[in-house]
Simulated scan of single mutants.
Amino acid sequence: MGRSTVQKRLSAPRVYAVPRKPRHGRFLTKVGPGPHPKELGIDLVTLLRDYLRSVSNAREALYVLKNRYLLVDGVVRTEKSFPVGLMDVIEVAREGKVYRMVPAVGRLLHPAPIPDSEKGLKISMIRSKVTVPGGRVQLGTHDGRSFLVDDPDAYFVGDSLLIKVPSQEIVSRIPLEEGTTALVIGGERLSSLGKVVRVIPGSFSVRPAVELEIGQERVLVPKELAMPVGMPEPPVTVRWVE
């Protein structure tokens, strides 16, 4: 038997901000392989129908995909199970609308409308750094991208990259350091923006953390949940505020 292509609404990952009751239909399209894990991504049918509300049902969503009207990070996507996630740029060509998937209060992914001037830019957070044959360094980011760089001391895990899409050209590095603006991408402070006060190294028994100044408060968040987005201010839209 092949892989199941549907997912029950009731047991869908928490990242799905959709109604769970049967009157809305029992099933969703199941997220397939792609740049985001299933716990952090949503499929294209749900994106078009429930998030963007560009279509009213799955059949219309498949029509949009088949006719190559949907672009993710500047690339046409036609596979209904392709996952979209944090900071992805979504363009519906036939409508002339562009969105960025950003956090909002209570949910990781919300399609925030953005101007055309932003659709060619994206922020990707560095999750891994390894040396490859030839002495070059390969960076892996939260959205499944890989970058080969020559200077091993110029980039660190936890930093972010401002890149051009779809060319994947690095525009600049956004370091995780004092004075940087960071976006909280998980936990009870989800979608909050704050200034980095200090980065606290981890140890064998203590996870690394970041102290952020959010409004008049200073809070600690796990390092992996503090995404650098600007030095000092974000160059693109990074969250949704109602």
Rank of each mutant, 00 (worst) to 15 (best):
P83N: 02
A112Y: 00
I170W: 08
L148F: 12
P115G: 07
V171Y: 08
S117M: 07
K122H: 05
K164V: 00
D159H: 14
I126D: 09
E79H: 10
L109A: 08
L161V: 04
A154Q: 12
L108I: 10
A182L: 01
G135N: 07
I42Y: 09
V165L: 01
V45P: 09
G158D: 07
L121C: 00
Y99Q: 05
Y155V: 07
V132R: 15
R49K: 15
S160K: 08
V184E: 10
S117E: 14
T131G: 07
S167F: 02
S167I: 03
V165Q: 02
V45S: 05
T131P: 01
I114W: 00
A93C: 07
S56T: 08
P133R: 14
R100V: 00
K66I: 01
D159A: 09
K97Y: 03
L65I: 06
G85A: 06
F156G: 06
R173Y: 03
L108R: 09
I174G: 12
L162D: 05
P113Y: 00
S117Q: 08
E169K: 10
K119T: 07
F82C: 02
A61S: 10
D43F: 13
S81R: 05
Y69V: 01
P133W: 06
G135S: 13
P152K: 13
R77N: 03
G179P: 04
A58C: 04
V171D: 10
L62Y: 15
V132L: 15
P115E: 12
L62H: 15
K97G: 00
L70I: 05
L148Q: 13
T181F: 08
L109K: 02
L109E: 02
R49F: 08
E60L: 10
S117A: 14
M101L: 15
K122G: 07
V75Y: 03
Q168V: 04
Q138C: 12
G134F: 11
V132G: 13
S81E: 04
R53M: 08
R145G: 09
R173V: 15
G158W: 09
E79C: 01
R59Y: 13
E169H: 03
D151Q: 13
H110R: 05
R68Y: 03
S56M: 07
I90A: 01
T141Y: 11
Q138W: 14
A104W: 00
H110S: 11
G134P: 14
